[in-house]
């Protein structure tokens, strides 16, 4: 080993070691305190949440049974016919799934259009009036915080059963979520084009159209696509409250214990969602690449 290695004087070493031990002990105490608080919270939450490990353990066989019942009887010799039997309702389920996609699409587009209009009013770098900023932001926050299902429940009462309240519920929630994201994008733009355009005497709308929109459009489209992905998932459960789509069939199958129907519908939903995820990812990469070229 290197002989040049020096040793600190003992007094110095003892002082440093003590300081090190004190620092470690303080960190340990902090961690312990954090764990204690966490444990208390967990116990309190478990009490309120009626967590019952005994019931869980006793019913776990039911879970495995349930999963086993979900698996359809498939045999190698007769695979084609078995699959046809499993997906016996694929035509109507497929139609419902397409409706679900359409609900998600219409909700996303309508919500994105609304968010596009409101986002500029919620951006601190374009709007000087604090009142307008405050009002737009609180409105967007309300739309975003109230869950879609709640909007759907109210809209079903107001507009009647069917996909229409589902579309509106998705649209309102999307308006809130995308409005915030869009506003954040707008607040991060390069302000020089805005100064340039307003220096020519353009109106506020003209400034937004020629200085802001070209900068933010690819980002907006990317956000909207991501939102579409999320909305497909939520449109799939709109049917639970009578707002259209595949959820209705799924709820019925679960409630009536048609096990293989449940798994068939779930498989179709998962496949559709994965396909949409892949497609939007490819599209988003192309969008961002396209914006990078320009």
């Amino acid at each position: 080993m290197a002989p040049a290695l020096t040793r600190l004087p003992d007094a110095e070493l003892a002082r440093l070691a003590a300081a090190y031990r004190a620092a470690v002990a303080a960190r340990r105490r902090q961690t312990l305190l954090f764990l204690a608080v966490l444990a208390v919270l967990v116990l309190a939450a478990a009490r309120v949440g009626e967590v019952d490990p005994a019931r869980f353990a006793a019913n776990l066989p039911r879970f495995t049974h349930y999963i086993r019942d979900l698996v359809p009887p498939l045999t190698w010799a007769n695979l084609g016919a078995d699959l046809a039997e499993w997906f016996w309702g694929w035509k109507s389920w497929g139609r419902q799934l397409l409706d679900t996609l359409l609900i998600a699409y219409m909700g996303t587009l309508a919500g994105a259009a609304g968010a596009f209009c409101l986002a500029f009013l919620a951006s601190a770098n374009l709007v000087r009036s604090r009142a307008v900023l405050f009002a737009t932001r609180r409105f967007l926050e309300f739309c975003r915080t109230v869950p879609e299902i709640v909007f759907a429940l109210v809209f079903v009462v107001a507009f009647g059963l069917g996909p229409m309240p589902g579309v509106l519920a998705v649209a309102v929630h999307t308006l809130g979520a995308l409005g915030k994201l869009f506003a954040e994008v707008v607040e991060n733009i390069d302000m020089k084009p805005v100064e340039g355009v307003s220096a020519t005497g353009a109106t506020w709308v003209g400034t937004v159209r020629f200085a802001v929109v070209p900068q933010v459009l690819p980002n907006f489209a990317s956000c909207a696509l991501l939102r579409f992905e999320i909305n497909v998932r939520s449109a799939a459960v709109m049917g639970f409250v009578g707002a259209g789509g595949i959820g209705q069939d799924l709820l019925e199958a679960v409630r009536k214990f048609y096990y293989t129907d449940v798994s068939a519908i779930l498989v179709m939903i998962i496949l559709t969602v994965s396909a949409i995820d892949l497609a939007t990812e490819v599209l988003r990469h192309r969008l961002i690449g396209w914006s990078g070229e320009r």
Binding site: V51, D52, R55, N59
Partner: peptide, 9 residues
């Protein structure tokens, strides 16, 4: 719900 019954659990 089918496994542990209705409720927060």
């Amino acid at each position: 719900i089918n496994v542990v019954g209705l409720g927060p659990f």
